[in-house]
Amino acid sequence: MFGPLEIETDRDSVAMGDDAVSHARQISVRPGIHLAELVEQASPEIREHGWSWVARVDGEAVAVWSIDHGARLLRPDRRITRRRAPKRVHFDYYVQIDPEWLHQRLSEGAAPNRLALEAEFAPIAQERWEIEQRRREREIHERLFSAECVDLLRGWGAVVNLHNDRLIRFELGGARWSASRADTMVLLGRGGGPNASIRPASFAECWLAAAVGADYRVARGAARMPEFDRLSLPELEPMASWPPGTKRWATIGALTVQLSGEDAVSAFELAHGRSLTEIADLIESGLSPA
């Protein structure tokens, strides 16, 4: 006699470009289903492990939903009747905050404020990330960069405090350097964001040797770069500046690079077409004995 209940659903966008189309839709549910079932049926189509969502029913936060744990209610479960049917379910994206931790904090009475909870969870996430990186270093024999590259960096005074199959992290002359694999690219940099993004990894370690070697030369009182010939370089195309005022360039093909700043380009020019041994010889040319 009576048909199903029609309820509007929507979700936050998760990245640039994800908001190109609307995520709003309408679902049909049978009268009498429970609130937890409604949240499951309305849940986002994105199925990424470790992602957390807070389900709001007519504006009220009622559950934490994730592909890992399903709907974890923040309110007592109840039946959805025609008389008490909600009009709208919206899913707020809570990034990679651990869904179990998020459910616990909201159950304890924390306000559903994503930015505040993200800041609170950040040190926990960092500690977990560090533990995972150490596990990979201990249990996986592969390394991101070759022993030849690491020995070269150490010879210039680098103190390597982590090196696994995805990441190397070291300090040299008070500066913190890192290189990490992201899909097929290797992100490399000193201090904050990456100064270079490079594929393949075999050239990424050559670029790193040239970039670190330039700092080593400065510390030894020499010019940042030695005299060298540029060997058949691929053409670098300018990119939009980021951060504002920082010039960037890129090339694509078998060798793919994105470079930020003039120093990154100089390291690219020195490293291209050369082995680690050849790069080291150039970097150390003209330096007085340590």
Score class of each variant (00 low, 15 high):
156 W>Q: 02
176 R>D: 14
167 L>W: 11
156 W>S: 02
175 A>L: 12
187 L>F: 09
188 L>G: 12
177 W>N: 07
115 L>P: 00
168 I>P: 03
138 R>H: 13
179 A>G: 15
114 R>F: 14
153 L>E: 01
135 R>S: 10
191 G>M: 11
136 R>K: 14
129 W>H: 08
190 R>A: 13
169 R>F: 15
128 R>F: 10
131 I>N: 00
132 E>D: 13
114 R>V: 06
136 R>F: 06
177 W>H: 15
160 V>S: 02
190 R>Y: 01
125 A>G: 12
141 H>P: 05
162 L>V: 03
146 S>K: 05
148 E>Q: 15
170 F>T: 01
123 P>W: 02
114 R>S: 03
184 T>N: 11
146 S>D: 08
185 M>T: 10
179 A>R: 10
134 R>L: 15
141 H>Y: 02
139 E>S: 08
175 A>N: 12
140 I>T: 08
179 A>E: 10
173 G>L: 11
124 I>D: 00
124 I>H: 03
128 R>V: 06
112 P>W: 00
139 E>W: 07
182 A>Q: 12
176 R>G: 10
167 L>E: 12
161 N>H: 14
130 E>K: 11
178 S>N: 09
168 I>R: 00
135 R>H: 13
179 A>K: 04
120 E>W: 04
175 A>E: 14
183 D>W: 09
121 F>T: 00
136 R>G: 05
128 R>I: 02
144 L>Q: 02
181 R>S: 15
147 A>Q: 13
117 L>S: 01
183 D>Y: 14
155 G>V: 08
126 Q>C: 05
165 D>R: 09
143 R>N: 08
145 F>A: 03
172 L>Q: 13
129 W>E: 11
143 R>H: 09
189 G>Q: 06
159 V>G: 00
123 P>I: 01
130 E>V: 04
170 F>H: 05
137 E>H: 09
185 M>Q: 11
122 A>Q: 09
173 G>P: 10
157 G>K: 05
165 D>L: 07
165 D>C: 13
160 V>N: 01
142 E>V: 03
115 L>M: 07
145 F>C: 04
116 A>R: 10
141 H>C: 05
161 N>E: 13
189 G>P: 12
119 A>D: 12
194 P>M: 06
